[in-house]
Amino acid sequence: MTEPEPAAAFSRTLLADPVALTAALCDIPSVSADERAIADAIEATLRAHAPHLELVRDGDAIVARTALGRAQRVVIAGHIDTVPINDNLPTRLEQGVLHGRGTVDMKGGCAVLLGLAVELDAPAYDVTWVFYDHEEVSSDLNGLGRLARTRPELLEADFAILGEPSNGTVEGGCNGTLRVELRTTGRRAHSARAWKGVNAIHALQPALATLATYEPATVEVDGLAYREGLNAVGVTGGVAGNVIPDAAVMEVNYRFAPDKSAAEAERLMRELFESESIAVVVTDAAAGARPGLDAPLAQHFLAAVGGTPAPKYGWTDVARFSELGIPAVNYGPGDPSLAHADDERVEVQQIVDCARGLRAWLAAG
């Protein structure tokens, strides 16, 4: 078997244009678990053009660090994988909008990071740039989570910025997420003699009634209002069209404000749904993150880039930084509501503005 050709480094001309660099990154397909090619290109670029950075490759995650002896260190991170492509590559630029898979989530942010990592050889803070894999899949595969478990010293910092799409504004913290299965059991019977059976799907009715009338809260945390959400996202049950089902499962997703722990969110789900006929089984849980905007570095960053901070409703990896005791915010180009959409697209001005804002903050300190 022949070895693959070494990845070519992006040119300095391309690195100086965050919009063109976004398109170049997007045009390297990198659906989760297939990040090697883009990771190779990023590593080759940093090795060729950024001798001021110490590089560590961990699987398909790349960590690049300055070692300038600054009083404070910041981590600036972005994931390099995308959800599956659906006839939305290669990218195309039309009337100031770049279309294509990954333009929003989140290769626009990664382009900003990569360009500045090469450009800024003497930032006001020591900077750890992180490009990581497997964000769009199961949490246990997440490259940032892997680094936190196995190389936590690489992530040590006073403040962190995640380049997730935030419409070019600062979004503090994030909601937590909890998925539970509501399981019911019954007794099979021929549907012509339904009275001889017990319908497990019908036994889900109390849970559906609770969901239909539940009013999710809006919770203020450190000055930001986080909207919660509670929804059924899947139902399974039944074995044939003429058989009363003896088992049914409804999956419920609870998006909870960062004033709660995952354990507190689980207790609420049990209070709402658990009964003699319904079992509650947790299948996934991830705590949110408080806004982190009270940290001095966060305040300085916000003042430098401007705008009014907003809450992040979805879960992002800022929660991993929060778990490590590092205040963190989201800041990147792109409308989060277009992430994963087949018509994913980003206004190029947002990419330019994010690069300008981050550069100004890192250069001035």
Rank of each mutant, 00 (worst) to 15 (best):
L224N: 00
L293Q: 11
E266P: 09
L272I: 10
L268W: 06
I244V: 15
E264M: 02
R270G: 02
T316C: 05
G238D: 10
W315I: 02
I278K: 00
R255G: 06
L224A: 03
V235H: 04
A289D: 10
P309L: 07
G241N: 09
P258K: 02
A285P: 12
A295E: 14
A279M: 04
N231D: 15
A303C: 03
G241A: 08
Q299V: 03
F273E: 05
L302E: 00
G306W: 07
A232V: 13
V281R: 14
T283L: 05
V235E: 07
A247I: 05
A279L: 01
A225E: 09
F256Q: 10
A257P: 12
I278P: 01
E276P: 01
D284T: 10
P296G: 06
V282N: 04
R270L: 08
R267K: 14
G234H: 14
A298Q: 10
L293H: 12
D259N: 14
V233C: 11
L302I: 05
G288E: 06
A225V: 12
F273W: 06
D259Y: 00
A286V: 14
Q299M: 08
G237H: 13
H300L: 14
A286S: 15
R290L: 13
G292T: 10
V243N: 03
K312N: 07
M250L: 14
V252G: 00
A285V: 13
G288Y: 01
L230W: 03
M269E: 00
G223V: 12
A225P: 03
A298L: 05
G229L: 15
P245H: 01
Y313E: 03
L297N: 05
A304W: 00
A265D: 07
G238S: 04
L302D: 02
M269L: 13
V281E: 15
L268C: 01
E264S: 08
P245A: 03
R270Y: 04
A232N: 11
A285I: 11
P291V: 10
F301M: 09
A304K: 03
A279K: 05
T316V: 02
S277I: 07
E276S: 12
G223T: 13
A263M: 06
G288F: 13
H300E: 15
A262F: 12
A310G: 10
S261H: 07
T308A: 08
S277G: 01
Y254W: 14
D259K: 01
T316Y: 11
F273I: 09
F273C: 02
M250E: 07
A289R: 13
M250C: 12
D259L: 06
N242L: 13
G223P: 02
G306Y: 04
E274Q: 05
I278L: 03
A287K: 05
A304G: 00
N242A: 14
L293P: 08
P309D: 11
T308G: 02
V282A: 09
Y313V: 08
G307L: 14
P245T: 07
I278D: 00
M250K: 11
V252Q: 00
A289H: 14
D284G: 13
G292H: 12
A247G: 10
F301A: 01
M269D: 00
G223K: 02
Q299P: 07
E228D: 06
V239K: 13
L293M: 09
G223I: 05
